[in-house]
């Protein structure tokens, strides 16, 4: 036994080190992904007997207006959430100076990201609150008529996205601040001697050096946009009349709320969301894989 161990230690060791983590990950993450795909082919209330219905859940999705509303909102989230990337870069550039106390300023700017989205949601609900909310008042001053953002189906999704952008911009900002710290000073000086400044400097000299930061910023922003659940749940609970639902929220609503326990249908929605996210995840993995194997 000891002889065998001595001879094969280097081969077995990685698997022994991996075993606990891999086991947990397989049971709680990898397994459930396939299980959900399987469940999406059943009609199941989570308690009784599950009944095989094949693709009926997906067929139903095709005619479900609520599904299309959620899908449309997801697209809006995805597009507008990307604003966090340039906005974060802008703030990072603004703060990348050395005046007294700048460190404190930087951490205070980062604050929103540390706070729970539940708290962020409550803050913005209060900010938007009809009749007395600061935002409502401001609109009233400028247009003479206040708007209850969270009660208007035309504006509600944008209102929630604005709340989501607040912490996301802070996150991107910190990524870029770290990135700007590592920009090669000699290249900047050389470009300056060549007369580059402002936008041209940013575009041709700085941004290429910030590419790793940009990559991570895009990854976390895309994932964050598609994962949005907390804010929708806290601020509007999907309303008014379901107009602020996103896929993640609609899935929860179908599978596990007062609207009933349609696990199969919920799983089908989750599979669609998963498929959408997989497109992005594959892209990220492909890029990381290339970087890894090139090294």
């Amino acid at each position: 036994m000891t002889a065998f161990w001595k001879a094969n230690q280097r081969k077995l060791a990685p698997w022994l080190f991996l075993a606990p983590g891999l086991l947990m990950f397989a049971v709680y993450v990898i397994g459930p992904i396939f299980e959900s795909m399987w469940i999406s082919l059943y009609d199941w209330d989570g308690l009784g007997e599950a009944r095989w219905i094949g693709t009926a859940n997906y067929v139903e999705l095709f005619d479900d207006d609520a599904f299309y509303t959620s899908l449309k909102n997801n697209v809006i989230w995805l597009v507008l959430y990307m604003l966090a990337v340039p906005a974060g870069l802008l703030i990072a550039i603004f703060l990348n100076q050395t005046i007294t106390g700048i460190r404190i300023y930087k951490s205070l700017f980062f604050f929103p990201f540390v706070i729970s989205q539940v708290v962020v949601g409550l803050m913005f609900s209060w900010f938007y609150a009809p009749d007395f909310g600061l935002f409502y008042k401001l609109i009233e001053v400028f247009t003479g008529q206040g708007i209850a953002i969270l009660a208007e189906d035309r504006f509600v999704t944008y209102g929630i996205i604005a709340a989501g952008l607040w912490p996301q911009i802070a996150y991107v900002m910190i990524l870029y601040l770290t990135g700007l710290n590592n920009v090669a000073p000699d290249q900047v000086e050389a470009a300056r001697l060549d007369g580059a400044k402002g936008w041209r400097m940013l575009w041709y000299v700085i941004l290429p050096q910030l590419r790793p930061a940009t990559f991570i910023a895009v990854v976390v922003t895309v994932i964050g946009a598609l994962r949005s659940f907390d804010l929708v749940s806290i601020m509007t609970d999907g309303g008014p009349f379901g107009s602020s639902r996103v896929l993640s929220f609609y899935m929860y609503e179908q599978a596990l709320s007062e609207y009933g326990y349609r696990m199969g249908y919920g799983a089908a929605i989750a599979v669609v969301l998963f498929a959408i996210m997989m497109v992005f995840i594959s892209g990220f993995i492909w890029k990381m894989w290339r970087d890894e194997t090139e090294r």
Partner: peptide, 13 residues
Amino acid sequence: AGNFVPFQILMVP
């Protein structure tokens, strides 16, 4: 990849 999946695909199982 597992770290990036939507929570909802794991929820029911």
